[in-house]
Every structure is written in structure tokens, then in C-alpha cells.
Simulated scan of single mutants.
Amino acid sequence: MILVTGGTGLVGSHLLYKLVRENEHVRAIYRRSHTLKRVKHVFSYYCENHNELYNKIEWVEADLNDVPALEFAFKDIDYVYHCAAFVSFEPNKYYQLRNINIEGTANIVNLCVSNRIKKLCYVSSIAAIGHEPNPEQLITEKTEWNPEEDNSVYAITKYGAEMEVWRGTQEGVPAVIVNPGIILGPGYWKGGSSGNLFRLIHKGMTYFSSGSSGYVNVWDVSDIMYKLMKSDIINERYILVSENLSFKAFQEKVAQTLNVKPAKKEISLMILEIGWRLDWLSSKLLGRRRKLSKQLAKSIRTKTVYDNSKIKNAIQTEFNSINNSIEKVSEYYLKDTN
């Protein structure tokens, strides 16, 4: 039997659809019951008998730090996909991020060890991979993490979570780690998901930034995770990036598919530097949530390019183009919002 944590998130919901379509026996963890409707909605995108497929999932209410509930969820489990995570770049969320991403992953790993799980797949992020000093140099799985850099709180905790997974491999749990880029997919149009980018671009954005990053769609991510778990590959990590794109190019492609005007002005370094300081000040004086941290301001003007050759060679896979992915996600966005 398979256990999926974070089953109500973007990756988790699409992975669940993949698993039930493959006739796998699946149990999934959720934290709040109202989030289950998101999974049903995702299933409804892809087939008419979505309720029948959804009902094949055995749901368990559990928190990553509720060990007794997790022990119940692990009963009779052979394989684990650990997709649950907290995504935030707000510095004041650091301890909450640690609690969920690091301590929660440690609990999952401990239960994998004690239950002699056959294989674990952990969904990490390109945020947990180091950076090259030359922005034109490809970042690979071997690019070293530098703890002395001004890393975001999210990146720090995802890297810490990976360390827990590697600890588990030393204690007898075979594992694979995937490091997706910015994951494009439908059904989650608010919050920390990339779907929020489609919503913001559709509403109209004034500025674009000078940075770049790697992108991949959620269907490729879930498909590759499934193939890795079915393979003999263990104790490896893989960058999952279809294409590297500038933020400007991404905004223009999305704007075109949504039939809106793209941002025309590049945001200057001065505006960003002033912006994150004002954001910090308003959070201190008015108690507002952080929207632009120092690390995020740096990230959106940093050019990074990622190498996807390791995963392509490992399981002989090809990624869908980002153009097609954007068109597909935009189609679902317009259906959901019109």
C-alpha cells in the first residue's frame, strides 16, 4: 500500500490521480477537511468518473507533527511519497517552516525506518540546491549548498528536510529526492502555488524582474516520481526542470495565453531595495504579513539555469514544453474563473 503526505496540495492531488489511475492502493494524509474538495476539483479536470476514482483513496486526518496519528496512517504501508510542505518566504515564518518542513520530515523518516518502508520519495525544491557564481553556468545535482549565503528561510528548511531523508537512507530506508523548479499546474490559484502567478498576471502586472528560473509542469513531476518509485534507483536526487526561462519571458507567455497585456517595465534594483525595507517596516509597525523579503527581492533578479540531463538519462524521459504547459494551465484557469 502507498502513503501520500500532502495529498491536498498541487503535487499531491495530481500524484493521487496518477496513482489511482494506475490502480494502486492508496492512503493519503490531510490536515483540514475543507481542502479535500480541491482534490475532487483536480480530479474533475481529467475524467467524468472523478468521484469514483476519488473514492478509491483512503483518507487519514493527520499532522506531520502528530506522531500517534502518523503511526496509524503508516499501518500496512510499503511505499511513501512525502509531498507535504509549508511554502513561505516570510522570514518571521522560519520556526513554523522548521516545524513542518524539517521536524515533520524527520517524523516521516523515523516512521519509515520503524515500519521498514521499501522506498521513500521526497518532494524537495530547486531552492535546496546551491548556486553557481557564474549565472550562465548550469546548476546540477552536484552544485554544493552554501550555508554562508543569504538563503531564504524556505530554502534553508527544504535543505534541512533533505538532510533528514539522507539520514533515513543511512538507517535502512531507500529513497529518491526530486527537486522540481517552479511547478505549473491547475486548481490552486491562490497562496504559495504557481497558480497565483497566473491570477496576478491575469489581473495585470506593471513590472517584470530581470531574473530567471527553471519551470516544470505538475504532470511531468508526478509521472517522474511514479517512474522513480517503480525503478531500481535508490538514494539519488534529481532536478526536475523542463526549461529555463526569464521571468519576463514567462510573464509574456502567460499574458498572451490569457489575452492580457504583459508587464512593460523592468523593476529597478533601487525600487526592490527600498521595497523590501518598507515591507519590513510595515510588518513591524502595522503587523502586516511580509510580501517582499530581502532574500525574495534578491531571488527575483538572480539568473539561474538548471541542468535536467541526470533525470532524462536515468529513466529516459522527456519533458513537456513550457509553452504547452502554460497553454494547458491557462485553459483551466479561464474555466475556473469565468
Rank of each mutant, 00 (worst) to 15 (best):
I234L: 08
S193Y: 01
V241G: 09
Y215I: 13
K227H: 13
P186L: 04
R199S: 12
L245C: 02
S193Q: 06
A249R: 14
I234K: 13
V218Y: 02
Y207D: 05
I182M: 05
L245D: 01
N217Q: 09
Y207C: 08
N196S: 14
F208D: 01
N235Q: 06
I239S: 07
R199P: 03
M229I: 07
M229S: 05
G185R: 13
K190A: 14
M205K: 11
S242P: 14
M205A: 08
P186H: 03
Y226F: 15
G204S: 08
L228N: 00
G211H: 15
A249W: 08
K248E: 11
P180I: 03
K203R: 12
M225F: 02
N244P: 02
V218A: 00
S193F: 12
L197Q: 14
K227W: 11
S193M: 03
K248D: 04
S209F: 13
S210T: 11
T206W: 02
S246T: 15
V216H: 03
W189M: 08
M205Y: 05
I239C: 09
R237V: 06
N179D: 08
R237P: 00
E236R: 12
S246F: 04
K230V: 00
I182F: 14
V216S: 03
G187F: 01
I224L: 09
W189P: 02
G214T: 00
P186A: 00
N244M: 04
A249L: 03
V178C: 12
P186R: 04
